[in-house]
Design a protein around this nucleic acid. Sequence first.
DNA 1: CAGTGGTCTAGACCACCCC
DNA 2: GGGTGGTCTAGACCACTGA
Lengths: 255, 255
Amino acid sequence: MSSAERQTAFRRVADDLRTALAGDSFAAGVPLPTEAELCDRYGVSRQTVRRAFQDLVAEGLVVRVPGRGTFPASGDGRYIRQLGSIEDLMALSADSALQVLDPLTGSVDPAAAGRLHLPDDRVFTASFVRLHDGRPFGHTRVHLPPAVGRRLAEAPELAGPGRTSTVTVIGLLDQLLDEPIAEAEQSIAVASAPPDASAALGLAEGAAVLRVDRTYLDGAGTPVELAVSHFHPERYTYRVRLRRSRPPRREDRAP
Amino acid sequence: MSSAERQTAFRRVADDLRTALAGDSFAAGVPLPTEAELCDRYGVSRQTVRRAFQDLVAEGLVVRVPGRGTFPASGDGRYIRQLGSIEDLMALSADSALQVLDPLTGSVDPAAAGRLHLPDDRVFTASFVRLHDGRPFGHTRVHLPPAVGRRLAEAPELAGPGRTSTVTVIGLLDQLLDEPIAEAEQSIAVASAPPDASAALGLAEGAAVLRVDRTYLDGAGTPVELAVSHFHPERYTYRVRLRRSRPPRREDRAP
DNA sequence: CAGTGGTCTAGACCACCCC
DNA sequence: GGGTGGTCTAGACCACTGA
């Protein structure tokens, strides 16, 4: 598979390792190729290989142990992504693909329109699946205010059913809007898969899935996108790294 | 002065920048020192300075913009840095209660010990339910390294089965540790409820639940707590608000 | 145009692990 | 001891920003 665009050397190395990890190329306790070996294989310097591993560590895909080697982290082949900021959501496309099921068109949906704080019930709606390694792991239904929906409907990536690309709707939207996207509200729960999602994911109707609702807001706090996703329970894990607001230092612990 | 240990050059640079950022040394919109300047000031190579910035970027403290410079990430100062923070987890107790099922005692659990990076298989383990309005919505099993587990076992809140309080284990732990808790890694997925969790939540065994694994790390990156929670699918939703780390625009310099 | 950060190379020394 | 990853240096070229 691999990504279409691989601008930099370290990205190429990281992409290849990522897809190899997603497949069954590396057993659980078996170390990945060493830095030296990858230097040879790709004809790059050691720092470049290290830069690639750096991303994989940050994504939680591998664990590196000094003196021993680099090992696959969780092993159960789920799609894992660090999602701690909006940038993470926009970059989601790096190693996954979007395939359009229903292109972006106008429709009437009171529930979605209400959640977008729209004056009437008209919204633009599209649905698509996200694929990793050619297999669907998530189904998403996106709702947009008509004003932006009309403009985004011209984007070729969302034009026809079956179109596959590596974009994110939120990434396209951000380029299009005058005011950039500033915030997202997200809720995560267990739900029963609705018919379209279960069909797209190859699950029985009503199967338990991870449901993620995201509302994106621009700088003024106006909702600009509502995305309702259902994820395959065995192919997706949501991961966040939480930090303390103030970096803890020994000195400032005293009350 | 300064940090007790600064083993590496890049850490020293990063530490200094962090404390400078924590103070008001850098106004919002004013760029930090450039790589070249820090190279001079610390007498290190450019890669070393870059390695320091890399941590600060990962921590969400600064934003780097090619061609322009490096800026504090908190932007307008009135913004709170990062919602979905560890403080939120510690404050979880505000409107929920903790009821002890199995008090904190020593046990042998290779899987948990491995995830805590412990040298052998001994851990301290406790389990409890979380209640809201008197009804259980989550079951949690907590694992601690023996060193801290022994001390925490003396806390009255975790002493006997049936004890109810409004604490969080992580809150108790943070007061007890020499080094404060700095980070948490969290993963969220759909799972089948194990027997103890399904019993505690009043669900059929194997029912689909929301599984949340959290590993808490201290400032040195040492894992200090592993918590595995299972949440009732109809009584719990995980909410996060994501914020964009906004690079300053040309217009909004100068107050 | 000079300055910024992003990438990359080809060396080097170290602490650690395992044989 | 030989191999691993962790750190560091002193160069280099690039794309981009700003005046």
